[in-house]
Write a protein that binds this DNA or RNA. Structure first.
Lengths: 337, 337
DNA sequence: TTGAAAGCGATACCAT
DNA sequence: ATGGTATCGCTTTCAA
């Protein structure tokens, strides 16, 4: 069924049908009724491709994430989508599995679909791709990579602060042997998190020892990484994870080895995914406001003032739950104050 | 940048550029090179809307799920998408939150986008909607609802068998007081699962008592439902959950109440999401092959022979893990055979 | 093997 | 307030 056919059946012009469907005020109520009746009768649904082509707007936003199985990304997506829906926009998602070639394909795909805005929430960005997007005239939001520019809004989280706070908190609990579970060594922002960890550790001085390991961004990956960490000579009493998704597997590996959390080993995640508080033990983590990020991304894409590109910085916040506690052997008397 | 502009710069006709881009063999290699050079030079990306409009095919599949935060749905999506990508198709996802009005909107949206196939993996289907889709000429796959028809493939899982096996297994372990944690009472397939549970329970006879509760399809929902169940007078020693996603919260609630799993209470989920084996305790559950469902859906949509609509039935399989064990007070001597 | 031109199904401008 | 029509960017005959 086409617009033209609807017009014919209603005995009006295509222009009128179009006006009715787009809710133009310049159409007499009687006319509107006549048209709508036919529309309902034949169950007419406009062809978005024709609309996008003729109208020059797709009413579509795109979002590319590294790993859609990681609830963090899903959280951002849900928020973005919620806002978009309110403005009658749709959101297309693609996920890359942290692979650059898939990112390239996803970007191409989004551009071919003529999205009116693109949120790129991935870690596998490199300078080349960033510049290619900066050359486009689509509004773009980057998370954790890139610099603001004409069409670019940058949202970034102070991972360093989050890592630092977590480490200091654990240090204050008496921990002196730390482990870090990361993933995808080699990807810019992820590498940076690990480096931050290393720096914080070194700042503690000689009394502190540490090791790092990595796996895929999944519970299984976290489990493997934790396995590596625990098989080493360090025997860490505190493990920081690059994210909660992996921390799930870390908890599991600890459990398998008969290590109690937090009595024997403390674990901290990152992101505060919904699952974190439902795990046993619930997960100490760093809150990254997914909903806020989704909303900010949406606003940047839709209402971004091309004149003043924004650089949004988010301060993370430590959330202490059951998975962390005093280092084993520490005096556990608690001050009740 | 448009096809026409590329054609101009290459000094050829639009038709030729189109042929080159679609990999038509009827174009001289030299010509192909000339065109591709320009295409790369100007970074040309075809407009999918124009392609879809002119070509009459969108090279797009649609998938609608009830709850994208439930890893089960995500698992099916990932598999479907993987296969689609191999055939140069894209998959659009929408999620409904179990709300009929959103399902209606999603279906409309997909139809307007002229998807070439639509997988509807939701519980909030009703006869009206099913028939509306059956009237369409798009291939459709339903999961767990609807009957096969001209353009309809139906994939269904024998939930009854899964529930039955789980219940019998727990019964054999000595459990006599059962709880069921479901969600969205009132939605067809979900209601059915609960009824199945009830039937199985009643079949056990007078020695068995049971109760049901429900919440949202989320860990938090499972937690609340479990809370209700445990606040009652029944004091179940075994809890069956409508899915693993909710079971996560059930485990947590048990933990909060100081009940040990499986020593005090056994828990069984449904779906076997990836997380299930990483929980502590790992979750006894019923395996629903998500990847297979995704693949079957894909094949039905792409290669479905309109002549013979298919009715695919999947037999679930019980997976016993740590969250289930003998009922408390049961003689625990184990035969070592 | 390549080009010209007729659609595809809407929108939006210009008339009336 | 309504209609006519050029236009969007591409695919696909049909000719040459």
């Amino acid at each position: 069924m086409t617009l033209a056919e609807v017009a014919r059946r209603a005995g009006v012009s295509a222009a009128t049908v179009s006006r009715v469907l787009s809710g133009s005020p310049a159409v007499k109520p009687s006319m509107r009724e006549r048209v709508l009746t036919v529309v309902r009768q034949v169950n007419y649904l406009p062809n978005v491709h024709a609309q996008a082509l003729a109208g020059g707007r797709s009413r579509t936003l795109g979002m590319i994430v590294s790993n859609i199985e990681n609830p963090f990304f899903l959280g951002v997506f849900m928020a973005l989508e919620e806002h978009a829906t309110q403005q009658e926009y749709e959101v297309l998602v693609e996920h890359t599995g942290y692979r650059r070639e898939r990112l390239v394909a996803s970007i191409r795909s989004m551009l071919k679909r003529r999205v009116e805005g693109l949120a790129v929430i991935v870690s596998e960005m490199d300078r080349g791709l960033i510049e290619e997007l900066a050359a486009q005239d689509v509004p773009v939001v980057f998370y954790d990579v890139g610099r603001p520019a004409r069409n670019i809004t940058s949202i970034r989280v102070r991972y360093d602060r989050g890592t630092q706070r977590t480490a200091e908190y654990l240090y204050s609990l008496g921990h002196r042997r730390f482990g870090f579970v990361g993933h995808h060594a080699g990807l810019g922002p992820l590498e940076e998190r690990k480096r931050t960890f290393t720096e914080v550790m070194e700042r503690f001085g000689k009394g502190v020892r540490f090791a790092t390991a990595s796996g895929m961004d999944s519970p299984a990956g976290g489990r493997h990484a934790a396995g590596d960490l625990l098989s080493g000579t360090l025997r860490p009493t505190a493990i920081l994870c690059a994210n909660d998704h992996m921390a799930v597997g870390v908890l599991r590996e600890l459990h398998d080895r008969g290590l109690r959390v937090p009595d024997d080993v403390s674990v901290a995640g990152f992101d505060n995914i919904g699952l974190a508080e439902h795990l046993c033990p619930s997960l100490t983590t760093v809150r990254i406001p997914q909903r806020m990020i989704g909303q900010l991304a949406f606003e940047a894409l839709m209402f971004g003032d091309a004149a003043k590109p924004r650089d949004i910085v988010i301060e993370p916040e430590l959330i202490v739950r059951e998975s962390s506690g005093p280092a084993p052997g520490t005096n556990r008397r608690r001050r009740i104050d």
